[in-house]
Amino acid sequence: MLEARGLTKEFNGFLAVRDVDLTVERGTIHALIGPNGAGKTTCFNLLTKFLRPTSGKITYDGRDITAMSPTDIARLGLVRSFQISAVFGEMTVLENVRVALQRQRGESYDFWRSDRTLNQFDGDARRYIDDVGLSEFVDHRAAELSYGRKRALEIATTLALEPKMLLLDEPMAGMAQQDVELISVLIRRISEGRTILMVEHNLSVVADLSDKITVLAQGEVLEEGDYETVSKSPKVIEAYIGVDHE
């Protein structure tokens, strides 16, 4: 579904990502992990085109997207979330999802349209809200939600864009354990029929959700495989805790 070959990013002589090869199989949950400074965020931003690669090629669903913009690839069904929850706090849960659905009208998001005009989107909006377990909060202002539920709302607005593939940037960041469990269940549920690539620090979440894991260190691929394989790798153990176990 998503493939990178020779992906490299240089910042003023510093190689943040070096010759990374990555293949995300269709219909899987793939995790991108690594210690601090490994290049995960840079790699993620390259894949979603928020950064331009210095060299390399990115293919999505059989199409070369290396030179495309984030907006253009989102229209192809490759949609990402961000580390910081991005919802409209003064809008209700329903209104937040309805904004995402307004793309069906074309290019305009029509904040000034009457409710009567926008009510046509309510049925679909409620369906996505139900998918993420927020039905009882449909008329609540987004600002009133807990952090975990704000993340769930963000995922609902992402689903409203009808993505073929979701890229989740640290979906568990800053969450209490209760919210982590909530979002883990949600990611598992929405993965049916979709492909997911996520950057995540919580290794218990990675172990529970991921079909395949790519470990980065110092901008390069260190190890790849299922959780059992990468967790037992001496190279991965050394990268994370700084001890050579070979």
Rank of each mutant, 00 (worst) to 15 (best):
S55F: 09
L159I: 13
E223C: 10
L22N: 02
A160L: 04
T28C: 00
Y227F: 15
L94A: 12
R141T: 08
D64H: 06
V230E: 06
V24E: 02
E90M: 07
Y147T: 10
R18K: 05
L47P: 01
D169K: 10
V221K: 03
K40Y: 03
N45F: 09
R105Q: 08
G34M: 00
D110F: 15
D169H: 05
I84Q: 13
V199A: 10
E3W: 08
E90L: 09
P70G: 07
K150V: 02
Q177P: 11
T229L: 02
R26L: 01
L76E: 13
E223H: 00
K150N: 03
M91D: 02
T92L: 06
K40Q: 03
L78D: 09
G148M: 04
M172Q: 07
K164Y: 08
F121R: 10
S114C: 04
S81A: 11
Q120E: 14
V199I: 12
L2C: 01
A100D: 12
L222R: 00
R188K: 15
D72Y: 08
A207K: 15
K164S: 13
R116V: 09
F137H: 03
R75P: 06
G34K: 01
N119V: 03
Y147F: 02
D115H: 13
L94H: 09
A16W: 09
E154Q: 01
F14K: 07
G148K: 05
K57Q: 11
P53G: 07
F50V: 05
E223N: 01
Q177H: 15
L134G: 05
E223V: 04
I58R: 01
S135R: 12
I213C: 12
V205R: 10
D115I: 07
I84N: 15
S81Y: 07
K9F: 14
K235P: 00
A86N: 14
A125L: 03
G148L: 03
D179G: 05
H245E: 03
A207R: 15
T48Y: 00
K232T: 06
L46T: 01
W112S: 02
D131Y: 15
V17A: 04
T195S: 14
L2D: 01
R26K: 11
K235C: 01
D244N: 14
I129W: 14
G62F: 09
R127M: 12
L78N: 08
N202I: 14
V97Y: 13
K49T: 09
E154C: 02
R5L: 07
V93S: 00
F88E: 09
D19Q: 05
R26I: 01
R103D: 05
N36S: 06
P234R: 09
E192I: 03
G13S: 04
E192G: 06
G39D: 02
P234K: 09
N12D: 11
G174E: 14
D169P: 05
K212C: 06
T66F: 08
S146P: 11
Y227L: 06
